[in-house]
Nucleic acid binder design. Structure first.
Lengths: 335, 335
DNA sequence: CTGAAAGCGCTTACAG
DNA sequence: CTGAAAGCGCTTACAG
């Protein structure tokens, strides 16, 4: 049986079959330029019947566009679910505007893949999913005059960025702990070079300020990124008799919980525990851990809309306000 | 200060500057066709100095290629780390051959995004990262005559697929348990429509066969995909006094462990626990859980190499043999 | 070894 | 309202 062998039509084929010019077909398809209603009809019908779809690459070449967005994804993303949700938000939105997303793995420091992507002119813009202080990537993108938006905070006026309300949320979470009467809070967090670490710490400090409690700087630990270091600072925290461990992310939190278990320290009976970033893990842990849930999908979506706007796409300005929830679970039960 | 305003050269510019034809420039760059050594030199030098890089899209159009690979990623990937590592393996390899990867989120059942990607002719081939029984995606890809490879098992002769040795590894893991004298093993697993569920179960049964132990089918549970169901079957397993819970994936395993904790049942003292898929979580749990570690990065790499081969790329046949490790941890200590 | 020309499949001034 | 033509930036027979 000779397969249906779906002939791939070109605009020229259609023009010939219909006895009109390529120009006309093109116009009927794009809707740009004046064109007779009847002619347009005929073209559209033909197209539908033979389910033609234009060669986007050719279209792109003619317009000096690619209809592709690049997503720079850090290779060492601990926070898997964050990047996944973000990516889905971006892709979905891109798709709605007929763009596709090319992923580019971003190795620490270097920018090999991203460089190629940009130099090859395979994307119209870039979305950078981890904002790093003094980023090479950002510098490169600027230099190459490639439009981009970064996800996460930025103190650079020229950079378009979208972000979760990390500082605000961290502050609310911390305030709550203080209001519960917990006084000595240990903060355990990630890489100092990540902006987000800074925001969370700031929120933590803001809350102390607001509640009129002096933050104990001796139990604020940052750049704690492996199990050994975590074990060490948990030990220190316990020795210092902190009331609560405040973890900046879920992975750290899992590890802290592990350490506590091992030391035979009970949560929440002996010490409280919270995470500044929620995940399924936080929910199904023993005990379930109080944490902050952000709308990461929405974040990706917003980033993408900003990008599309920069590219001159006519996006309806449905930019959603990013919110978060403070989810109280057993790990902070005080009774 | 007028930015360096990096002029974007085209092949025509170069030809003019050097007083040769575009053909010559093209040849000097691609290395195809005979060309004078000296001329080639001159071109290459010019190119280096002005760091020109060709417009890949235009090149693609001329060759009816895109130099893009599509990766179909399931939106509901529980096994985040699997897809991430796989993706990195793919992207890395693609990059080495000057391809880029467009991600396409694959919603349950539907194939909207993938369809667009293919119809728009934005990719040369597709890599499908979850093999599902009787897959719509596969059917569509075949119909459209789009080259593709699937990651995971496939019983379809026409389909190129690469896979982890799931069955073999599951068998080894199970055998080990049986050899340790554990007799009643509960198997808890995921979606029946996923091929991988089938492979793991088969390996589990093979081991029983090999060891001459009758598998107790009453404690083989599949399609257990949410916390409620897990809680239920764990309860049943405990009541049936199983010796060990064998979980097909890490997420399930985490939940099973949670349930056991809640019921006050100790691992490994009262019951053993293993996972057929490793992750950091398994390592840093209390107790750490015995599990199977696969080379997912290598899997992605292989998939990509297969794909590139199909596309006529001259890949060195460094196809790596996929292996796995059986990592024994505290959760199966028998003393 | 080198080049003029046609072509990849589209878009878009420009001129009817 | 419609079309011939040039152009997007490359490649590749074909003919020197």
């Amino acid at each position: 049986m000779p397969e249906q062998e779906a002939k791939i039509y070109t605009i020229a084929d259609i023009a010939k079959e219909l006895g009109v010019s390529k120009t006309t077909v093109s116009r009927a398809l794009s809707g740009k330029g004046r064109i007779g209603a009847e002619t347009a009809q005929r073209v559209q019908e033909f197209v539908r019947e033979h389910n033609y779809s234009p060669n986007v690459v050719a279209k792109g070449l003619a317009q000096s566009k690619t209809y592709n967005l690049g997503i720079a994804l850090p290779f060492d993303c601990v926070d898997l679910s964050f990047f996944k949700e973000c990516m889905i938000g971006i892709c979905e939105t891109a798709c709605r505007y007929s763009y596709d997303c090319i992923v580019s793995i971003q190795w620490e420091g270097g920018l090999s893949q991203i460089e190629r992507l940009v130099m090859d002119r395979k994307v119209d813009g870039m979305i950078v999913t981890r904002s790093v202080i003094d980023s090479q990537v950002v510098r490169f993108l600027k230099e190459r005059q490639m439009p981009f938006v970064v996800i996460g905070p930025s103190d650079d006026w020229e950079v378009v960025s979208v972000d979760n309300p990390n500082q605000e949320a961290s502050m609310e979470l911390t305030s709550l702990l203080l209001m519960k009467g917990l006084r000595k809070l240990a903060l355990i967090g990630g890489n100092n070079m990540h902006y987000v670490t800074e925001s969370r710490k700031q929120g933590f400090l803001d809350a102390h300020m607001e509640q009129g409690v002096l933050a104990d700087r001796s139990v604020i630990y940052t750049d704690i990124d492996d199990y050994r270091k975590i074990a060490r600072v948990v030990g220190q925290g316990v020795a210092a008799q902190v009331d609560c461990f405040v973890c900046m992310d879920e992975l750290t939190c899992m590890s802290v919980l592990g350490c506590l278990h091992e030391m035979g320290i009970r949560v929440p009976a002996d010490v409280k525990l919270v995470s500044m970033y929620d995940s399924h893990r936080m929910e199904f842990n023993t005990p379930p851990v109080t944490s902050l849930r952000f709308d990461t999908y929405g974040l990706g979506k917003n980033a993408c809309m900003e990008m599309l706007k920069m590219l001159g796409e006519n996006v309806e300005d449905e930019q959603l306000a990013l919110s978060y929830q403070l989810i109280l679970r057993e790990s902070t039960k005080t009774t």
